Simulated scan of single mutants.
Amino acid sequence: MSELIFDTVSVRYGGRRGLAAVDGVSLTVPAGKVVGLVGESGSGKSTLARAAVGLSPISAGRVLLGGVDVRKLPRRRPLQMVFQDPYSSLNPRMTIGESITEAIPRGVLPGRSARKEEVARLLELVNLDPDRADHLPGQMSGGQRQRVALARALAGRPEALIADEITSALDVSVQGAVLNLVRSVQRQLDLSMLFISHNLAVIRYLSDIVAVMYLGRIVEAGPAEQVLADPQHPYTRDLLDAAPSAHKSLFDLEPSATADAEPPDPHYPPAGCRYHPRCPVGPLVRSDREICLRADPAEDAASRRHAAACHFSESEGHEPAISRGASA
C-alpha cells in the first residue's frame, strides 16, 4: 500500500482560456484507507481520476504515489483504475482469462501454468468461478463483468486503486454485492483507494474520508463520519438534503430555489465563491454577504473545519475568516 497524493492538480482543455475541468485540486488518499469523492455530474471527479492514470493530461501540479510522480512510473504502474462501464473496459473478443492475463506485469509470473493459476486465484478473489476464464464478456452479466474488471485491475499488483462510479451502471439488486466485495478486497489487500460516486449512501458505507467536489474544486474534505454528520459547506448540505433516506422519499425533497438553479458554465466560473449563484445562505439570499461575490474562500480553506471553501462555514451567522475588500 502507498499514499496517493494529488498536489494542486489542474486539467485544462483548449489552452489557457479553455475549460478547467479540474482546478488546483489537492487531495490525499492515506495508505490503506478509502477516500470517497462525491459530487454532481460534471464536477470533475472522473477527470481527476483519469489524470491520475494518465488518460487525461495534467496541465499543472502532480500526482504522487508513494512519493513518486506517476508520470515517472513505468507503463505498468502500480496504480490501477476500475471504470464505470465494465463492458466497454473489457475487450469483447478476448476471453476473461486472456483479459486478466494481459494485465499481469511481465516477468512476475513466468510460465503459462503460473499465469493460469493466478487468473484462477483472482477470479476466486472476486467471487467468480475460475471456469469462467474461458467465457467472453458478452456471456456474463453486468455484475459479473464488473467483478472481472476488478480482477483485471488487481492483476496489475496495484498499491492504490481508483474506482470510478463502478456500481452506477448495475442493477440495484447487484450493487450491494459488488460494494461488499470491494470493501472486502480493499481490507484484505490493504489497498489505498479513491472511490468515486454521486451516491452518498455508497460513500458513507465504504469511505474513511469524504471529499466533496464542485465545479473542478474540492470544497470540503474530512473524516467521513464528521463530514456527513456535520457538513460545513452549503453544497455538502444540499447534497445531503437531496439524498432520499429511510425517512424521506424522492417526493418529500424540496430543494431551495438557489440550489435548484443550473450550475454555472465551467468555461466561465463565477468570481469569488463558485457556489454563490446557487447557495441558499449566500449573497442572493443575504445582502450582507457580498464578500462571496469577490473573495475566493478556497484561498484560506485550510484554516476552516473540514477545509471548507466557504466564508460562512461554521454557521449562518459566522463572520468570514477573511475580510479583503470589506468596507470599514
Results as ranks from 00 to 15, higher is better:
residue 109 L to E: 15
residue 97 G to A: 05
residue 211 A to F: 01
residue 14 G to C: 07
residue 205 Y to C: 06
residue 34 V to H: 02
residue 46 S to D: 01
residue 39 G to M: 07
residue 238 D to G: 10
residue 101 T to S: 10
residue 284 L to M: 03
residue 145 R to F: 11
residue 218 I to E: 10
residue 245 S to A: 13
residue 216 G to W: 01
residue 166 I to M: 01
residue 157 R to A: 13
residue 86 P to T: 02
residue 195 F to D: 07
residue 289 R to V: 09
residue 19 L to T: 04
residue 121 R to F: 11
residue 230 D to Y: 08
residue 286 R to G: 05
residue 298 A to Y: 11
residue 305 R to Q: 12
residue 54 G to K: 06
residue 18 G to K: 07
residue 160 A to P: 09
residue 200 L to R: 06
residue 142 G to I: 09
residue 175 Q to R: 15
residue 216 G to Y: 03
residue 75 R to L: 11
residue 236 T to E: 14
residue 196 I to K: 04
residue 124 E to F: 15
residue 295 A to F: 05
residue 197 S to Y: 00
residue 264 P to V: 09
residue 107 G to P: 10
residue 224 A to H: 01
residue 91 N to I: 08
residue 69 D to I: 15
residue 44 G to D: 03
residue 318 H to Q: 12
residue 69 D to A: 09
residue 60 A to C: 12
residue 148 V to L: 01
residue 274 R to V: 15
residue 180 N to D: 13
residue 164 D to M: 12
residue 36 G to D: 04
residue 16 R to K: 13
residue 32 G to A: 09
residue 268 Y to R: 13
residue 110 P to R: 11
residue 106 R to L: 14
residue 97 G to R: 03
residue 324 R to Q: 11
residue 134 D to K: 15
residue 186 Q to K: 07
residue 321 A to Y: 00
residue 29 V to A: 12
residue 199 N to A: 13
residue 313 S to V: 07
residue 158 P to S: 11
residue 182 V to Q: 06
residue 98 E to F: 02
residue 96 I to H: 00
residue 238 D to R: 06
residue 304 R to Y: 07
residue 266 P to Y: 06
residue 113 S to T: 14
residue 221 A to E: 12
residue 237 R to H: 09
residue 119 V to L: 12
residue 58 I to K: 10
residue 328 A to K: 14
residue 316 E to R: 14
residue 52 A to D: 04
residue 52 A to F: 02
residue 303 S to G: 07
residue 164 D to R: 09
residue 74 P to A: 02
residue 27 L to K: 04
residue 165 E to D: 09
residue 305 R to E: 10
residue 233 H to W: 02
residue 94 M to Q: 15
residue 189 L to M: 13
residue 293 L to V: 06
residue 169 A to P: 14
residue 323 S to K: 14
residue 233 H to T: 05
residue 277 P to Q: 13
residue 171 D to V: 09
residue 208 D to W: 02
residue 212 V to C: 04
residue 166 I to A: 00
residue 102 E to C: 08
residue 266 P to W: 05
residue 17 R to E: 11
residue 206 L to C: 00
residue 126 V to A: 03
residue 22 V to E: 09
residue 237 R to Y: 04
residue 154 L to H: 09
residue 284 L to Q: 04
residue 232 Q to E: 15
residue 28 T to S: 12
residue 171 D to K: 09
residue 95 T to E: 06
residue 115 R to N: 07
residue 162 I to Q: 08
residue 219 V to Y: 02
residue 250 L to I: 12
residue 66 G to E: 00
residue 141 S to C: 04
residue 279 C to I: 08
residue 214 Y to T: 13
residue 41 S to R: 01
residue 20 A to L: 12
residue 190 D to M: 02
residue 185 V to A: 11
residue 190 D to T: 10
residue 262 E to Y: 12
residue 88 S to R: 12
residue 36 G to L: 04
residue 100 I to W: 02
residue 268 Y to A: 08
